[in-house]
Simulated scan of single mutants.
Amino acid sequence: MFNNIKAVLFDLDGTLVDSMWMWKDIDIQFLNKYGIEYPEGLQESIEGMSFSETAEYFKSRFQLMESLEQIKEEWNKMAWHRYTNQVPLKEGALELLQYLKENNIKAGIATSNSRELVNLIVQQLGLESYFGSIRTSCEVEKGKPSPDIYLLVAKDLGVKPEQCLVFEDVLPGVMAGKNAGAKVCAVYDAYSAKDTDVKKEAADYYINSFFELPVF
Score class of each variant (00 low, 15 high):
residue 31 L to E: 06
residue 39 P to N: 07
residue 76 N to K: 05
residue 32 N to Y: 00
residue 99 Y to S: 02
residue 163 Q to L: 04
residue 170 V to R: 01
residue 5 I to S: 01
residue 151 L to N: 12
residue 11 D to I: 04
residue 81 H to L: 10
residue 23 W to T: 12
residue 142 K to W: 02
residue 16 L to M: 14
residue 139 E to M: 09
residue 105 I to E: 05
residue 125 L to M: 11
residue 36 I to D: 05
residue 28 I to A: 06
residue 170 V to W: 00
residue 191 Y to A: 14
residue 94 L to K: 13
residue 102 E to Q: 15
residue 68 L to M: 10
residue 180 A to H: 12
residue 168 E to T: 08
residue 21 W to S: 08
residue 107 A to T: 12
residue 80 W to F: 15
residue 38 Y to W: 03
residue 145 P to M: 06
residue 159 V to Y: 05
residue 89 L to T: 10
residue 3 N to T: 14
residue 92 G to M: 09
residue 13 D to F: 10
residue 93 A to G: 09
residue 97 L to Q: 12
residue 53 E to L: 03
residue 174 V to N: 12
residue 27 D to V: 02
residue 130 Y to G: 02
residue 11 D to Q: 02
residue 68 L to Q: 15
residue 136 T to P: 00
residue 148 D to S: 06
residue 99 Y to H: 15
residue 190 A to H: 14
residue 131 F to E: 11
residue 146 S to P: 01
residue 158 G to Q: 08
residue 100 L to V: 09
residue 45 S to M: 11
residue 128 E to L: 07
residue 185 C to Y: 10
residue 77 K to C: 01
residue 109 I to S: 05
residue 175 M to I: 11
residue 162 E to Q: 12
residue 209 S to R: 06
residue 205 Y to E: 04
residue 156 D to F: 01
residue 165 L to M: 13
residue 137 S to W: 00
residue 87 V to T: 08
residue 51 F to V: 03
residue 151 L to F: 05
residue 98 Q to C: 12
residue 45 S to T: 05
residue 83 Y to W: 11
residue 43 Q to D: 12
residue 197 D to G: 01
residue 19 S to Y: 09
residue 173 G to C: 03
residue 149 I to Q: 02
residue 117 L to M: 14
residue 138 C to N: 15
residue 199 K to V: 05
residue 55 A to V: 10
residue 74 E to R: 11
residue 213 L to Y: 09
residue 193 A to K: 15
residue 61 R to Q: 12
residue 35 G to D: 02
residue 153 V to R: 04
residue 57 Y to P: 02
residue 184 V to Y: 13
residue 7 A to H: 10
residue 73 E to V: 02
residue 69 E to Q: 15
residue 153 V to G: 10
residue 54 T to D: 06
residue 83 Y to S: 04
residue 62 F to N: 06
residue 8 V to K: 05
residue 214 P to E: 15
